[in-house]
Amino acid sequence: MTGAPLKLLALDAEDLAVVSAHLQDAVLKASDMAYLARERRFVLVCSRFDWAAVDGGACQRRRTGMRFEQVSAVRARGIPKGGDAALELLAIRFAPELEPAGTIELVFAGGAGLRLTVECIEAALDDLSPAWQAETVPGHD
């Protein structure tokens, strides 16, 4: 069962938690991410596991784009150079500093992570492709 493509906007920590839930177990490469400093934007494209479809009996993924606006800096930890190694996104978190400013953290399996310094939460998720059959449902310890 294939649902409609997602289009989500996150303007606060609660919205970002919803986006995080939809992107849990998304896979991507370092080459699928870019910091556009002049535009103050961080973007990524991933293969999102469609957790909502599991309830309908489907096991599927979709190509999904994600953008974060008002980004002033990006720090990486454990992200492989070269861009071909697979990364599995586990969560997206927000740590407020001088609100609405703060840090958005992208947490990947294996201890890798990204920290985006933002003036405020302004992010959007857009599915870019139809769903395709996934081989397995991601599992967690």
Rank of each mutant, 00 (worst) to 15 (best):
P5H: 03
D12W: 02
A13M: 03
A13L: 12
E14C: 05
D15V: 00
S20G: 14
H22A: 07
H22S: 14
D25M: 10
V27E: 10
L28Y: 15
A30Y: 15
A34N: 09
Y35L: 09
R38Q: 14
R38L: 14
R40L: 14
R40E: 04
R41L: 15
L44S: 07
V45L: 13
C46M: 14
S47T: 04
R48I: 09
R48T: 03
F49D: 07
D50L: 09
W51K: 08
W51Y: 08
D55S: 15
D55K: 15
G57A: 02
Q60H: 05
Q60M: 07
R62C: 10
R62Y: 03
R62W: 02
R63E: 01
R67C: 05
R67Y: 08
Q70N: 09
A76Q: 15
G78L: 09
P80G: 01
A86T: 11
E88C: 10
E88S: 02
L89A: 10
A91S: 13
I92C: 11
R93M: 07
A95L: 07
P100Y: 05
P100H: 02
T103Y: 01
I104G: 02
I104Q: 06
I104C: 14
V107K: 09
A109F: 06
G110M: 03
G110N: 02
G111P: 03
G113A: 04
G113I: 10
L114A: 01
R115M: 00
E119Y: 00
C120M: 13
I121A: 09
E122V: 00
D126M: 12
Q133W: 03
